[in-house]
Amino acid sequence: MCTTCGCGQGEGRIEGDEHPHAHADGMIHSHAHMHEHGIGQRRMVQIERNLLEKNDAFAKLNREQFAEKGIFVLNLVSSPGSGKTTLLTATIERLKDRLAIAVIEGDQQTTHDADRIRATGVPAIQINTGKGCHLDAHMVGHAAERLNLPQDSVLMIENVGNLVCPSAFDLGEAHKVVILSVTEGEDKPLKYPDMFAAADLLVLNKVDLLPYLKFEVDQCLDFAHRVNPRLKIIRTSAVTGEGMAAWTDWIESGARAAKNSRSEAPSKPPCHA
């Protein structure tokens, strides 16, 4: 086993220890050159560090700050066009008299979504990721700071429409909620398994359109459970209101739990953001 670059390292259970190996450009080579360091200072340094460690450190910090203030945080993820923002505004309308809600909107460009949220009367802040295709914990920490979130509130983070990258980036949320609309394919959970594996709740949205579509609900849910057997499912339509009570109940019970664990936690000096 190659101890220099570490492939197939240690465990001895990785099949096809591929030295030499082929690169996508068709070039085949071995790592032999790695073992023949020339004169001078050239050397191999073992690193073994996670590419996401910086994000994960910020996410941990966010999570601690949210817990301290009893804030229930959801990271809403989906493909573009799943109806996230419409669902969000309908959710806010139902909850804003009972809960303090704030929203962080992530999009590559424009403040359209934050404008739509602000029209409901709750504070919202837009993050434009520019070239980035997802929010990260560092951006969210700063946006949350600027929102000056009250104790025991709910923070909804609408991530950039993308079922790939946001799955890997912890923002410090309590739950990832994946929103899938019935106008998409039933097999999305199999096509994008990482996201469905990372989520705790699947909101199957736009169910009012089911009579006009060939979407097989049971098959879709079966696919989702194949990837993640503990995934909870709520079917919603922001237009007819179907399932909205189940969804808002779920949010309220999460918010209560966040509040209770704050008040049960050992008391700390108040946090003045």
Binding site: R43, M44, V45, I47, L51, A168
Partner: peptide, 13 residues
């Protein structure tokens, strides 16, 4: 296994 995203090693001078 198979979810790793790491910097394993660097050949440096």
């Amino acid at each position: 296994g198979g979810t790793e995203m790491r910097v394993k090693a660097l050949d440096v001078e």
